[in-house]
Nucleic acid binder design. Structure first.
Length: 829
DNA sequence: AGCACGCCGACT
DNA sequence: GTCGGCGTGCTC
C-alpha cells in the first residue's frame, strides 16, 4: 500500500502538519512529491499537496482515508520547491501550505465546489407542486449542478433543497476546481482532399459563401483558426458554423497559449563586447557557473555601468550548460524595454511573469516553464519560484529594492529565497545594485550574513566613460530666508527653464501622491483623519475628495470644519497633484506627465505614459518613486527632487538607507547618453549624510556612517528583528495577548541564558520590546499593537516565535486576536 | 478554514 | 415540542 503525506489547504497553525492518505491503485502512477491532490478532510473535500510518502508501519491504518484525485498531469511543484517551502515556513513563521501556495500561479489556487445531484434512481417527489417540479427539472438526466448556481437560479428554495437532501432524494458531492481558464479558440479542421473535392462538386450552388470557404480550404488544407478563416474568405463566422453543422468541416476547441508579447518584433541581439571592467566582473561568475558550485555574488555597479549585459552573458553560459536561469526585477522596472533586452537575446526561451498579466496569461507563461518550453524566467518577486528543474543561475537586479519583500503572508524576501533555492540546487546567485542593501554589502565585506560568503564584484564606471551627473543640493531654509516661498528653488526653476529652452527633458520626483498631505482647521486645530484607520486623509484635487491611502476610504472635500464649522479649513503639505498645478502656473505652456498610483492603475497606463514621454510629448515627467527606477531616456538631462528628506522622519531604521538609495537611483536617470546630466536636490536637511553623500556619489562614505549607527543600535545587518502584530476590534484583548507573548518570549530567552541584544561585544542576545500601539494604531477598524523581537547571533528566533505562538494558540484563538508575524520586516510600520 | 456536534430561545 | 442560534473541537 502506498501512503502519501499531504499538506491540506487550510492555512492555520493547527492543521500545519502532514496528514496521511492511501493512494488508490488508479492514482499511483500520478502521485509524486509536489502533486496537487484532492482529499477528504473532516467532511469535505479539499486541495492538498503531496510532500512525501510514509512507510506503512508508521501509519495508523484504522483512520486512513484515500486520495480522491490527482489534479494535474504534471506535478505543479518539484521536490526541490517543496523543500524550499519547508524552509520558508520555518524562516517566516507561516503554515507550509501558505508557502507552497505562494509558489503557484493564482490559476491553480483550487477551491472546493459543492455539487448537488439526484440520488440513484430518485424521481420527482410525488407530493411536489408545480414550482417544486421546476426545481427538480434543474437536474436534467441526473446531472450534478453547482450548489451556488442552484441558489442563484432558485434564490428562496434553499430549504426545499435541504429537505430533499435530508430525505435522501438528492446527494451532495464536492469537487476541487481550478480557477484556471485555459483559453480555447475554435479551429476549423478541413476534411481530407478527396472528400473536399467531392464536397465542392456536389455543393448547392446557392450556398455561395460556404462554397468559397471550401474552395479556400482546398487550397490551404491545414487546420486554421475560425477567426482567421473568416477573415481570409471574407465571410462571417456564422457561415463557417453552418458548414460545420452540415458536417462538411469539423470545428474543435483548441487550447491556445496567450502570448502577451504576440505580434511584437524583437530584433535579435548578440552578446556585446565587454569592457575590461565588465569582463573582470563576469569572470568570477563564469567560473562559478563552470564548476557548478553554489556561490553568491554582489555586483555593485553604478547606474549606467552595464550590469544587464553581464547578466545576459552569464545566462548565456548557464543555458549552454543545459541549465536554466531566473532573473528577478523589481515590479516597477519590469518595463517593455527591460523585457525586450531578454527577448531579443534569448527569444522564445524566455518566459515573463509579472503582475500586469491577466491570471490566464500568467498561467500560460508559468506552464511554458513547467513544461520545459522556456529556460529563462524574467519576472518580479514571485518569479523566484519558477518551476525549473535544473537551475544554474538566479539574478536579482536592484537587489536593495523593497518590493522584493512580500507584505502579505507569507512575508518572504525574494533575495533570501533566491539564496536558499540556489544553495539547494548548486546554482550561482548574482545580486546586482548601484546601491546595495546594507545587509548584502556587509555580508560581502565581512563574509557574514548569508548562507555562504558573498563575493564582491564592482563596476565603478559608467559605460563609455560618461560622467555621473553633477549633483547640486539646495537648502530650502535658505530659500525661505531669501523670500522664496514657492515649491521650486531658484536653482531648480532656472534649470527647468533651461531645459524648456533647449528642448530637453526633466524628471521630477516627489514622494507623495495626492494634492496635499493633510487638512487642518486653523480655528480649532482639527485635522481630517480616516474613520477606520487613525491616519490623516489626503486631499485629491481631481476628484475633490479626501482619501485614506491605507484603506481606500474617501469622503467629500469639506467646505467648513467638521468640528467647529469654521471656514478656516486649509490644505497643508504638497503632493504630486499640487506640484503639477504649480508647474503649469510657473512655466506657462509646460507639458507635464504625472505618474503615481492614481494615474497608473489602468492596465498598460504605466507603459503609455512612458512611451509618451519617450516620444517627447511632454517636457517633464513628474511622479512618486516609480519615476526613480530603471528608466532610460536620452533627452533627460535634469532630475529634480522636490523634498529629499520626506522619508527621513518616518519611524523606520532604514529611513536613511532608503533616502540615499532613492536619491542615487533618481540621480542616475540624468545624462545617460550624449547630453550631460544635472541633478538638483531640494531639502530642509542638507547636512544629513544620506543627502550629502549623494553629491559625491559616495556610496562607501554613506555606508560607513550608516553601518556605524546600525552597530550601535543593534539593527540589521548586526542584529535582526521580528515584529509581531496583534489586531482586534477592541483594545483590552490586545494588551493582554501582547503581554503574554512578550512574557513567554522573555522567559524562553532567559532560560537559554541570553542577555540583551544591545550589550557590548558579540555575544548572542535578545530583547523583546512592547507591546506598544503600532505606528498606525488602527487600520480598517482594527486596533493594532505590536511587539518587536530584537536579537543577534546564532539564534533561531523564528522557531522560538513559532513555539511561543503555539503555546498561546488556544488562548489567542478564543479571544479572537489575530496575530501577524513579520520576520526581518522591511518597514517599521 | 469549515463542518459537525452540542446545548438554550422563538416559532409551528 | 422542533428549528436553528453560534460556542468548542477536530480534521489522516
Amino acid at each position: 500500500m502506498i501512503i502519501a503525506r499531504v499538506i491540506v489547504d487550510v492555512p492555520t497553525r493547527e492543521t500545519d502538519r502532514p496528514f496521511d492518505y492511501e493512494v488508490p491503485e488508479r492514482l499511483a502512477a500520478w502521485t509524486e512529491i509536489g502533486s496537487r491532490v484532492a482529499v477528504p478532510f473532516g467532511g469535505r473535500t479539499l486541495q492538498g499537496f503531496v510532500v512525501g510518502f510514509a512507510p506503512e508501519a508508521e501509519v495508523d491504518r484504522s483512520r486512513l482515508k484515500s486520495l480522491t484525485d490527482v489534479l494535474d498531469a504534471l506535478p505543479p511543484l518539484t521536490p526541490e520547491l517543496v523543500e524550499l517551502g519547508v524552509w520558508m515556513s520555518r524562516r517566516w513563521v507561516c503554515p507550509l501550505v501558505v508557502a507552497l501556495q505562494a509558489m503557484l500561479p493564482a490559476a491553480l489556487k483550487g477551491r472546493t465546489e459543492k455539487y448537488i445531484a439526484p440520488a440513484e434512481g430518485a424521481e420527482v417527489p410525488p407530493d411536489a407542486d408545480e414550482s417544486e417540479a421546476a426545481v427538480w427539472q434543474a437536474f436534467r438526466r441526473g446531472s450534478a449542478v453547482k450548489w451556488s448556481s442552484l441558489l442563484q437560479q432558485f434564490p428562496d428554495r434553499g430549504p426545499l433543497l435541504k429537505r430533499w437532501l435530508k430525505e435522501g432524494r438528492l446527494t451532495e458531492l464536492q469537487k476541487v476546481e481550478d480557477r484556471l481558464s485555459v483559453k480555447t479558440v475554435p479551429v476549423v479542421y478541413p476534411p481530407d482532399s478527396d472528400k473536399l473535392d467531392e464536397l465542392l462538386r456536389e455543393f448547392p450552388a446557392r450556398a455561395r459563401k460556404q462554397r468559397d470557404v471550401l474552395a479556400y480550404l482546398a487550397e490551404h488544407p491545414e487546420p486554421i483558426a475560425l477567426a482567421a478563416l473568416a477573415e481570409a474568405t471574407d465571410v462571417s463566422a456564422q457561415v463557417i458554423r453552418a458548414l460545420a453543422d452540415r458536417g462538411s468541416v469539423e470545428i474543435r476547441q483548441v487550447t491556445e497559449d496567450r502570448d502577451p508579447y504576440q505580434g511584437r518584433e524583437f530584433a535579435a541581439s548578440s552578446p556585446l563586447a565587454l569592457t575590461p571592467a565588465q569582463q573582470a566582473a563576469l569572470d568570477p561568475i563564469a567560473s562559478s557557473l563552470a564548476s557548478r558550485e553554489h556561490r553568491v555574488f554582489l555586483l555593485h555597479g553604478v547606474t549606467g555601468s552595464g550590469k544587464t549585459e553581464i547578466y545576459l552573458q552569464a545566462i548565456q553560459m548557464c543555458l549552454s550548460q543545459g541549465r536554466e536561469a531566473i532573473v528577478l526585477v523589481p515590479e516597477i522596472a519590469l518595463t517593455p524595454q527591460m523585457v525586450d533586452r531578454f527577448k531579443s537575446r534569448f527569444g522564445a526561451r524566455v518566459a515573463v511573469l509579472h503582475s500586469r498579466l491577466s491570471q490566464g496569461e500568467r498561467y500560460d507563461e508559468w506552464r511554458k516553464i513547467r513544461e520545459g518550453r522556456a529556460q529563462v524566467a524574467v519576472g518580479a518577486r514571485s518569479a523566484v519560484f519558477a518551476p525549473f528543474a535544473k537551475i544554474g543561475l538566479i539574478v536579482i537586479d536592484e537587489e536593495h529594492e523593497t518590493s522584493y519583500k512580500q507584505e502579505e503572508s507569507p512575508k518572504y524576501h525574494a533575495r533570501d529565497v533566491a539564496a536558499e533555492r540556489a544553495r539547494l540546487s548548486g546554482a550561482a546567485v548574482v545580486f546586482g545594485s548601484a546601491t546595495p542593501s546594507l545587509e548584502s554589502y556587509a555580508a560581502a565585506a565581512d563574509g557574514e550574513g548569508y548562507a555562504g560568503d558573498i563575493t564582491y564584484v564592482a563596476l565603478p564606471e559608467r559605460v563609455g566613460d560618461r560622467p555621473l551627473p553633477a549633483v547640486r543640493i539646495v537648502d530650502m531654509r535658505e530659500e525661505l530666508r531669501l523670500g522664496n516661498r514657492a515649491m521650486f528653488s531658484g536653482a531648480l526653476k532656472q534649470a527647468l527653464e533651461e531645459r524648456l529652452r533647449r528642448e530637453e527633458q526633466a524628471v521630477l520626483l516627489l514622494n507623495r501622491r495626492g494634492y496635499s498631505t493633510f487638512v487642518m482647521c486653523r480655528s480649532c486645530g482639527y485635522t481630517c483623519s480616516c474613520p477606520h484607520c487613525d491616519i490623516a486623509l489626503t486631499y485629491h484635487r481631481g476628484s475633490r475628495n479626501l482619501r485614506c491611502h491605507y484603506c481606500g476610504y474617501a469622503e467629500a472635500e469639506p467646505e467648513t470644519c467638521p468640528s467647529c464649522q469654521s471656514k478656516h479649513i486649509r490644505f497643508f503639505g504638497t503632493g504630486t497633484q499640487k506640484v503639477e498645478e504649480a508647474l503649469a502656473e510657473t512655466f506657462p505652456g509646460i507639458r507635464v506627465i504625472r505618474m503615481d498610483v492614481d494615474t497608473t492603475t489602468e492596465k498598460g497606463s504605466h507603459e503609455k505614459w512612458l512611451t509618451m514621454f519617450r516620444e517627447r510629448k511632454a517636457d517633464v515627467l513628474l511622479g512618486t518613486q516609480m519615476v526613480a527606477k530603471g528608466l532610460d531616456f536620452p533627452r533627460v538631462t535634469l532630475v529634480g527632487v522636490l523634498a529629499a528628506d520626506a522619508a527621513l522622519r518616518l519611524p523606520d531604521f532604514r529611513a536613511a538607507e532608503r533616502t540615499f538609495q532613492l536619491l542615487t537611483q533618481v540621480a542616475g536617470r540624468a545624462g545617460r547618453h550624449e547630453l550631460p546630466g544635472e541633478v538638483v536636490i531640494q531639502t530642509y536637511d542638507p547636512e544629513h549624510f544620506s543627502v550629502a553623500s549623494v553629491q559625491g556619489h559616495d556610496y562607501k562614505g554613506f555606508v560607513r556612517q550608516e553601518l556605524h549607527t546600525r552597530r550601535l543600535l543593534g539593527y540589521p545587518p548586526y542584529g535582526r528583528l521580528i515584529s509581531v502584530t496583534f489586531t482586534h476590534e477592541s483594545v483590552p484583548m490586545l494588551l493582554s495577548t501582547g503581554e503574554m507573548f512578550a512574557r513567554l518570549m522573555r522567559e524562553r530567552a532567559a532560560s537559554m541564558g541570553l542577555g540583551s541584544a544591545a550589550q557590548p561585544g558579540d555575544r548572542p542576545g535578545m530583547d523583546v520590546l512592547g507591546p506598544v500601539p503600532s505606528p498606525i494604531p488602527r487600520l480598517k477598524d482594527r486596533y493594532r499593537f505590536q511587539c518587536m523581537v530584537k536579537y543577534r547571533g546564532e539564534i533561531d528566533a523564528s522557531a522560538m516565535t513559532a513555539r511561543v505562538l503555539q503555546e498561546m494558540g488556544d488562548n489567542a484563538k478564543r479571544s479572537g486576536v489575530q496575530i501577524g508575524v513579520d520576520v526581518d520586516p522591511q518597514m517599521m510600520l
